[in-house]
Amino acid sequence: MRPSDIRPAHDGVLSTDLHAEVRSVGTHAEAVLDRPFIEHGVMSTGSAKRILDRVWTVALGELTQLPPTTAPDRIRCLTSLLGTVRDLESRINESRVASSVEVMRSIHRSLVRLQSAKTVDELLTSAAEEVITIGFDRALISTVERGRWNLHTMVIEKDPRLAEEMVAAGREHPPTLDGTLVESDVVDRGEPGLVYDVQDNPRVDRTLVAISGCTSYGVAPINVGGRVMGLVHADAHYARRPVDNTDQSILTLFGEGLGYALARATVLERVSALTTTLSDLTGGAVSPSVQSSSYGLSGREVEVLERMAAGDNNRMIARRLTISEGTVKTHITHILRKLDAGNRAEAVAYWLRR
Protein backbone atom coordinates (compact mmCIF):
# COMPACT_ATOMS: atom_id res chain seq x y z
CA MET A 1 0.00 0.00 0.00
CA ARG A 2 1.09 3.57 -0.53
CA PRO A 3 2.81 5.27 2.44
CA SER A 4 0.15 8.00 2.54
CA ASP A 5 -2.58 5.42 3.15
CA ILE A 6 -1.07 3.36 5.94
CA ARG A 7 0.57 4.93 8.97
CA PRO A 8 3.21 3.42 11.25
CA ALA A 9 1.89 1.25 14.05
CA HIS A 10 1.12 2.56 17.49
CA ASP A 11 0.21 0.47 20.53
CA GLY A 12 -3.22 -0.04 22.03
CA VAL A 13 -5.01 2.30 24.40
CA LEU A 14 -4.37 1.79 28.11
CA SER A 15 -6.97 0.58 30.55
CA THR A 16 -8.71 3.30 32.54
CA ASP A 17 -6.83 2.41 35.73
CA LEU A 18 -3.38 2.38 34.15
CA HIS A 19 -4.14 5.56 32.23
CA ALA A 20 -5.03 7.32 35.49
CA GLU A 21 -1.90 6.04 37.25
CA VAL A 22 0.46 7.07 34.46
CA ARG A 23 -1.11 10.53 34.38
CA SER A 24 -0.82 10.76 38.17
CA VAL A 25 2.87 9.78 38.11
CA GLY A 26 3.53 12.19 35.25
CA THR A 27 1.83 15.05 37.08
CA HIS A 28 3.76 14.25 40.27
CA ALA A 29 7.02 14.09 38.31
CA GLU A 30 6.32 17.50 36.77
CA ALA A 31 6.06 18.96 40.26
CA VAL A 32 9.14 17.13 41.56
CA LEU A 33 11.42 17.65 38.55
CA ASP A 34 10.00 20.99 37.34
CA ARG A 35 9.52 20.04 33.68
CA PRO A 36 6.60 18.81 31.51
CA PHE A 37 5.99 15.10 30.90
CA ILE A 38 2.29 14.61 30.19
CA GLU A 39 1.24 14.30 26.52
CA HIS A 40 -2.12 15.52 25.29
CA GLY A 41 -4.67 13.29 23.57
CA VAL A 42 -5.57 9.62 24.00
CA MET A 43 -2.84 7.82 25.93
CA SER A 44 -1.62 4.65 24.26
CA THR A 45 0.74 2.05 25.65
CA GLY A 46 3.51 3.60 23.59
CA SER A 47 2.93 7.16 24.82
CA ALA A 48 2.67 5.94 28.42
CA LYS A 49 6.03 4.21 28.10
CA ARG A 50 7.57 7.35 26.62
CA ILE A 51 6.34 9.40 29.58
CA LEU A 52 7.68 6.92 32.11
CA ASP A 53 10.97 6.60 30.27
CA ARG A 54 11.50 10.37 30.31
CA VAL A 55 10.60 10.57 34.00
CA TRP A 56 13.09 7.76 34.73
CA THR A 57 15.87 9.37 32.72
CA VAL A 58 15.48 12.82 34.29
CA ALA A 59 15.02 11.54 37.86
CA LEU A 60 17.96 9.15 37.59
CA GLY A 61 20.13 11.87 36.04
CA GLU A 62 19.43 14.22 38.91
CA LEU A 63 19.89 11.50 41.53
CA THR A 64 23.34 10.53 40.22
CA GLN A 65 24.51 14.16 40.15
CA LEU A 66 23.27 15.30 43.56
CA PRO A 67 25.90 17.00 45.72
CA PRO A 68 26.78 15.45 49.11
CA THR A 69 24.90 18.21 50.89
CA THR A 70 21.55 17.22 49.34
CA ALA A 71 18.75 16.85 51.89
CA PRO A 72 17.74 13.20 52.59
CA ASP A 73 14.11 14.02 51.78
CA ARG A 74 15.07 14.94 48.23
CA ILE A 75 16.97 11.68 47.78
CA ARG A 76 14.02 9.68 49.15
CA CYS A 77 11.63 11.55 46.87
CA LEU A 78 13.65 10.77 43.72
CA THR A 79 14.25 7.16 44.76
CA SER A 80 10.54 6.66 45.43
CA LEU A 81 9.68 8.18 42.04
CA LEU A 82 12.07 5.80 40.27
CA GLY A 83 10.57 2.82 42.09
CA THR A 84 7.04 3.90 41.13
CA VAL A 85 8.06 4.25 37.47
CA ARG A 86 9.57 0.76 37.31
CA ASP A 87 6.56 -0.79 39.04
CA LEU A 88 4.15 0.92 36.64
CA GLU A 89 6.21 -0.12 33.59
CA SER A 90 6.09 -3.71 34.77
CA ARG A 91 2.32 -3.59 35.23
CA ILE A 92 1.85 -2.13 31.75
CA ASN A 93 3.87 -4.99 30.25
CA GLU A 94 1.87 -7.56 32.21
CA SER A 95 -1.37 -5.93 31.08
CA ARG A 96 -0.31 -6.15 27.44
CA VAL A 97 0.52 -9.85 27.77
CA ALA A 98 -2.77 -10.60 29.54
CA SER A 99 -4.68 -8.60 26.96
CA SER A 100 -3.01 -10.44 24.07
CA VAL A 101 -3.86 -13.81 25.59
CA GLU A 102 -7.50 -12.83 26.08
CA VAL A 103 -7.73 -11.48 22.54
CA MET A 104 -6.44 -14.79 21.16
CA ARG A 105 -9.03 -16.64 23.21
CA SER A 106 -11.78 -14.34 21.94
CA ILE A 107 -10.78 -14.92 18.33
CA HIS A 108 -10.69 -18.67 18.90
CA ARG A 109 -14.15 -18.65 20.49
CA SER A 110 -15.54 -16.58 17.61
CA LEU A 111 -14.15 -18.91 14.97
CA VAL A 112 -15.45 -21.96 16.81
CA ARG A 113 -18.95 -20.46 16.87
CA LEU A 114 -18.75 -19.80 13.13
CA GLN A 115 -18.22 -23.49 12.44
CA SER A 116 -21.93 -24.09 12.99
CA ALA A 117 -22.82 -22.08 9.86
CA LYS A 118 -24.24 -24.30 7.14
CA THR A 119 -24.42 -21.76 4.31
CA VAL A 120 -22.20 -18.97 3.04
CA ASP A 121 -24.88 -16.37 3.71
CA GLU A 122 -25.31 -17.55 7.29
CA LEU A 123 -21.55 -17.57 7.80
CA LEU A 124 -20.95 -14.06 6.50
CA THR A 125 -23.87 -12.66 8.49
CA SER A 126 -22.63 -14.31 11.68
CA ALA A 127 -19.04 -13.25 10.98
CA ALA A 128 -19.97 -9.57 11.17
CA GLU A 129 -21.54 -10.19 14.57
CA GLU A 130 -18.45 -12.03 15.79
CA VAL A 131 -16.11 -9.17 14.83
CA ILE A 132 -17.95 -7.05 17.41
CA THR A 133 -16.99 -9.55 20.12
CA ILE A 134 -13.23 -9.21 19.53
CA GLY A 135 -12.72 -5.54 20.27
CA PHE A 136 -14.54 -3.46 17.65
CA ASP A 137 -17.84 -1.58 17.66
CA ARG A 138 -18.55 -1.52 13.90
CA ALA A 139 -17.91 -4.39 11.50
CA LEU A 140 -18.46 -4.95 7.80
CA ILE A 141 -18.15 -8.23 5.89
CA SER A 142 -17.95 -8.11 2.10
CA THR A 143 -17.33 -10.44 -0.79
CA VAL A 144 -15.04 -9.79 -3.74
CA GLU A 145 -16.04 -10.94 -7.19
CA ARG A 146 -14.92 -9.89 -10.67
CA GLY A 147 -13.23 -6.75 -9.47
CA ARG A 148 -16.22 -5.66 -7.40
CA TRP A 149 -16.39 -5.01 -3.67
CA ASN A 150 -19.83 -6.34 -2.65
CA LEU A 151 -21.05 -5.34 0.80
CA HIS A 152 -22.78 -8.27 2.51
CA THR A 153 -23.46 -7.52 6.18
CA MET A 154 -22.64 -4.68 8.54
CA VAL A 155 -23.21 -4.69 12.28
CA ILE A 156 -23.36 -1.52 14.37
CA GLU A 157 -24.98 -2.37 17.68
CA LYS A 158 -25.46 1.28 18.61
CA ASP A 159 -26.97 2.23 15.27
CA PRO A 160 -28.47 -0.64 13.22
CA ARG A 161 -30.10 1.83 10.82
CA LEU A 162 -26.71 3.28 9.92
CA ALA A 163 -25.51 -0.24 9.17
CA GLU A 164 -28.45 -0.81 6.85
CA GLU A 165 -27.86 2.53 5.15
CA MET A 166 -24.20 1.69 4.58
CA VAL A 167 -24.96 -1.70 3.06
CA ALA A 168 -27.75 -0.28 0.92
CA ALA A 169 -25.47 2.44 -0.44
CA GLY A 170 -22.74 -0.08 -1.17
CA ARG A 171 -25.11 -2.45 -2.93
CA GLU A 172 -26.62 0.32 -5.02
CA HIS A 173 -23.20 1.32 -6.33
CA PRO A 174 -20.71 -1.52 -5.66
CA PRO A 175 -17.19 -0.02 -5.49
CA THR A 176 -14.85 -1.09 -8.27
CA LEU A 177 -11.47 -2.49 -7.23
CA ASP A 178 -9.48 -0.95 -10.05
CA GLY A 179 -6.49 0.25 -8.03
CA THR A 180 -7.91 3.57 -6.90
CA LEU A 181 -9.10 2.30 -3.51
CA VAL A 182 -7.03 1.01 -0.59
CA GLU A 183 -9.16 -2.14 -0.75
CA SER A 184 -7.67 -2.83 -4.18
CA ASP A 185 -4.23 -3.18 -2.58
CA VAL A 186 -5.60 -5.53 0.09
CA VAL A 187 -7.13 -7.76 -2.58
CA ASP A 188 -4.16 -7.65 -4.98
CA ARG A 189 -1.54 -8.32 -2.31
CA GLY A 190 -3.60 -10.37 0.09
CA GLU A 191 -2.33 -8.20 2.95
CA PRO A 192 -4.23 -6.26 5.66
CA GLY A 193 -4.06 -2.53 6.13
CA LEU A 194 -4.82 0.36 8.45
CA VAL A 195 -6.37 3.44 6.87
CA TYR A 196 -6.14 6.88 8.50
CA ASP A 197 -7.34 10.42 7.77
CA VAL A 198 -10.30 8.68 6.17
CA GLN A 199 -12.45 11.75 5.56
CA ASP A 200 -9.62 13.39 3.57
CA ASN A 201 -8.07 10.25 2.12
CA PRO A 202 -8.40 10.16 -1.70
CA ARG A 203 -8.17 6.37 -1.81
CA VAL A 204 -11.37 5.47 0.05
CA ASP A 205 -14.96 5.15 -1.17
CA ARG A 206 -16.29 8.66 -0.62
CA THR A 207 -19.95 7.63 -0.38
CA LEU A 208 -19.36 5.02 2.32
CA VAL A 209 -16.99 7.08 4.47
CA ALA A 210 -19.31 10.09 4.28
CA ILE A 211 -22.14 7.97 5.67
CA SER A 212 -20.00 6.28 8.32
CA GLY A 213 -18.17 9.37 9.54
CA CYS A 214 -15.19 7.20 10.45
CA THR A 215 -11.68 8.60 10.86
CA SER A 216 -9.71 5.36 10.68
CA TYR A 217 -10.41 1.71 9.95
CA GLY A 218 -8.74 -1.65 9.55
CA VAL A 219 -9.30 -4.03 6.66
CA ALA A 220 -8.14 -7.63 6.21
CA PRO A 221 -8.57 -10.13 3.37
CA ILE A 222 -10.64 -13.31 3.53
CA ASN A 223 -8.45 -15.76 1.68
CA VAL A 224 -9.73 -19.05 0.28
CA GLY A 225 -7.32 -21.32 -1.54
CA GLY A 226 -4.83 -18.54 -2.20
CA ARG A 227 -7.47 -16.18 -3.58
CA VAL A 228 -9.03 -13.20 -1.79
CA MET A 229 -12.76 -13.88 -1.72
CA GLY A 230 -13.83 -11.19 0.71
CA LEU A 231 -12.90 -8.40 3.11
CA VAL A 232 -13.31 -7.73 6.83
CA HIS A 233 -13.60 -4.06 7.82
CA ALA A 234 -13.79 -2.78 11.39
CA ASP A 235 -13.21 0.30 13.49
CA ALA A 236 -13.56 1.60 17.06
CA HIS A 237 -15.67 4.64 16.20
CA TYR A 238 -17.72 4.83 19.39
CA ALA A 239 -14.71 4.05 21.57
CA ARG A 240 -13.16 7.17 20.00
CA ARG A 241 -9.82 5.57 19.31
CA PRO A 242 -7.86 5.07 16.09
CA VAL A 243 -7.19 1.54 14.91
CA ASP A 244 -3.65 0.29 15.49
CA ASN A 245 -1.29 -2.58 14.80
CA THR A 246 -2.99 -4.74 17.42
CA ASP A 247 -6.29 -4.26 15.61
CA GLN A 248 -4.62 -5.19 12.33
CA SER A 249 -3.26 -8.40 13.83
CA ILE A 250 -6.69 -9.27 15.25
CA LEU A 251 -8.43 -8.69 11.92
CA THR A 252 -5.73 -10.66 10.09
CA LEU A 253 -6.16 -13.69 12.33
CA PHE A 254 -9.93 -13.46 12.16
CA GLY A 255 -9.83 -13.11 8.37
CA GLU A 256 -7.61 -16.17 8.05
CA GLY A 257 -9.93 -18.25 10.22
CA LEU A 258 -12.96 -16.94 8.36
CA GLY A 259 -11.35 -18.02 5.09
CA TYR A 260 -11.20 -21.63 6.28
CA ALA A 261 -14.79 -21.42 7.53
CA LEU A 262 -15.88 -19.95 4.19
CA ALA A 263 -14.28 -22.82 2.30
CA ARG A 264 -16.12 -25.29 4.55
CA ALA A 265 -19.46 -23.51 4.22
CA THR A 266 -19.08 -23.38 0.44
CA VAL A 267 -18.62 -27.14 0.33
CA LEU A 268 -21.61 -27.73 2.64
CA GLU A 269 -23.76 -25.45 0.52
CA ARG A 270 -22.82 -27.32 -2.65
CA VAL A 271 -23.52 -30.65 -1.00
CA SER A 272 -26.92 -29.36 0.14
CA ALA A 273 -27.73 -28.15 -3.37
CA LEU A 274 -26.65 -31.49 -4.82
CA THR A 275 -28.78 -33.33 -2.28
CA THR A 276 -31.79 -31.24 -3.24
CA THR A 277 -31.20 -31.88 -6.93
CA LEU A 278 -30.90 -35.63 -6.38
CA SER A 279 -34.02 -35.60 -4.22
CA ASP A 280 -35.96 -33.84 -6.98
CA LEU A 281 -34.72 -36.30 -9.58
CA THR A 282 -35.60 -39.32 -7.49
CA GLY A 283 -38.86 -37.94 -6.17
CA GLY A 284 -37.63 -38.25 -2.60
CA ALA A 285 -38.64 -36.01 0.25
CA VAL A 286 -36.50 -32.99 0.93
CA SER A 287 -34.54 -33.30 4.17
CA PRO A 288 -35.58 -31.08 7.11
CA SER A 289 -32.29 -29.17 6.98
CA VAL A 290 -32.82 -28.24 3.34
CA GLN A 291 -36.46 -27.35 3.94
CA SER A 292 -35.46 -25.08 6.79
CA SER A 293 -32.82 -23.32 4.71
CA SER A 294 -35.42 -22.49 2.03
CA TYR A 295 -36.65 -19.66 4.21
CA GLY A 296 -33.29 -17.97 3.74
CA LEU A 297 -32.82 -17.46 7.47
CA SER A 298 -29.51 -18.01 9.18
CA GLY A 299 -29.27 -20.32 12.17
CA ARG A 300 -29.14 -17.40 14.58
CA GLU A 301 -32.11 -15.73 12.90
CA VAL A 302 -34.12 -18.92 13.34
CA GLU A 303 -33.24 -18.92 17.05
CA VAL A 304 -34.37 -15.31 17.39
CA LEU A 305 -37.62 -16.02 15.52
CA GLU A 306 -38.32 -19.04 17.70
CA ARG A 307 -37.91 -16.86 20.80
CA MET A 308 -40.21 -14.26 19.24
CA ALA A 309 -42.79 -16.98 18.67
CA ALA A 310 -42.42 -17.94 22.33
CA GLY A 311 -43.37 -14.39 23.32
CA ASP A 312 -39.93 -13.12 24.39
CA ASN A 313 -39.18 -9.42 24.04
CA ASN A 314 -35.83 -8.15 22.75
CA ARG A 315 -34.22 -8.03 26.19
CA MET A 316 -35.29 -11.58 27.01
CA ILE A 317 -34.03 -12.83 23.63
CA ALA A 318 -30.69 -11.10 24.18
CA ARG A 319 -30.28 -12.75 27.58
CA ARG A 320 -31.28 -16.21 26.37
CA LEU A 321 -28.95 -16.12 23.34
CA THR A 322 -26.16 -14.21 25.11
CA ILE A 323 -26.09 -11.37 22.60
CA SER A 324 -26.81 -7.64 22.85
CA GLU A 325 -30.22 -6.07 22.29
CA GLY A 326 -28.72 -4.20 19.34
CA THR A 327 -27.78 -7.48 17.69
CA VAL A 328 -31.30 -8.81 18.36
CA LYS A 329 -32.76 -5.78 16.58
CA THR A 330 -30.44 -6.35 13.63
CA HIS A 331 -31.57 -10.00 13.40
CA ILE A 332 -35.23 -8.99 13.54
CA THR A 333 -34.68 -6.47 10.74
CA HIS A 334 -33.15 -9.24 8.60
CA ILE A 335 -35.98 -11.64 9.50
CA LEU A 336 -38.70 -9.17 8.50
CA ARG A 337 -36.96 -8.48 5.20
CA LYS A 338 -36.40 -12.15 4.34
CA LEU A 339 -39.95 -13.17 5.25
CA ASP A 340 -41.39 -10.03 3.64
CA ALA A 341 -43.23 -9.38 6.91
CA GLY A 342 -44.46 -5.96 7.97
CA ASN A 343 -44.00 -6.52 11.69
CA ARG A 344 -43.08 -9.06 14.35
CA ALA A 345 -46.58 -10.54 14.49
CA GLU A 346 -46.60 -11.25 10.75
CA ALA A 347 -43.17 -12.82 10.96
CA VAL A 348 -44.22 -15.09 13.83
CA ALA A 349 -47.46 -16.04 12.05
CA TYR A 350 -45.53 -16.89 8.92
CA TRP A 351 -43.11 -19.00 10.95
CA LEU A 352 -45.84 -20.88 12.80
CA ARG A 353 -47.54 -21.77 9.50
CA ARG A 354 -44.38 -23.39 8.07
Rank of each mutant, 00 (worst) to 15 (best):
P72Y: 07
P175L: 12
R148P: 01
S126E: 12
P67I: 13
P72T: 13
I75V: 14
D87C: 02
T180P: 15
L63D: 08
L114M: 09
S116R: 13
A98M: 06
C77R: 13
R96V: 13
T119C: 06
T84A: 10
L162I: 02
A98W: 04
V120A: 09
V103S: 07
G147N: 04
I134Y: 00
M166N: 00
E129V: 11
R96A: 10
P72N: 12
A128D: 02
A71P: 08
R91Q: 14
S116Q: 11
I156L: 06
I156M: 10
V97F: 12
L111H: 08
V101D: 04
L114D: 07
S116E: 11
V85G: 05
W56I: 03
G147P: 04
R91C: 12
K118M: 09
T125Y: 06
I92L: 12
L111R: 10
I141K: 01
G147F: 05
E165Y: 00
G83K: 10
S142Q: 11
L88M: 01
R113Y: 05
L123I: 03
T176Y: 11
R91S: 12
Q115P: 02
T57W: 14
I92E: 09
V144Q: 07
N93H: 10
A128K: 00
A163D: 03
I75Q: 09
E89R: 09
A71I: 14
V120Q: 14
R146Y: 05
R138K: 15
D137Y: 12
T119W: 03
T143I: 08
T153S: 14
G170Q: 03
G170K: 04
C77N: 09
R96N: 11
H152E: 13
V155L: 00
E157S: 13
R91M: 09
E157R: 06
D159S: 00
D73K: 08
A98E: 07
L140A: 11
D121A: 11
D87V: 04
A71S: 14
E102L: 10
A98T: 04
A169M: 08
R86Y: 03
T153C: 10
T57A: 12
V167Y: 00
R86F: 05
L123C: 07
P68Y: 06
M154R: 04
T125G: 13
L66Q: 11
I156F: 00
N150E: 08
L60T: 14
L162C: 03
I107N: 02
E157V: 07
T57V: 14
G147Y: 08
I75K: 09
V120P: 14
N93C: 05
A139L: 13
R105Y: 08
V131D: 01
Q115Y: 08
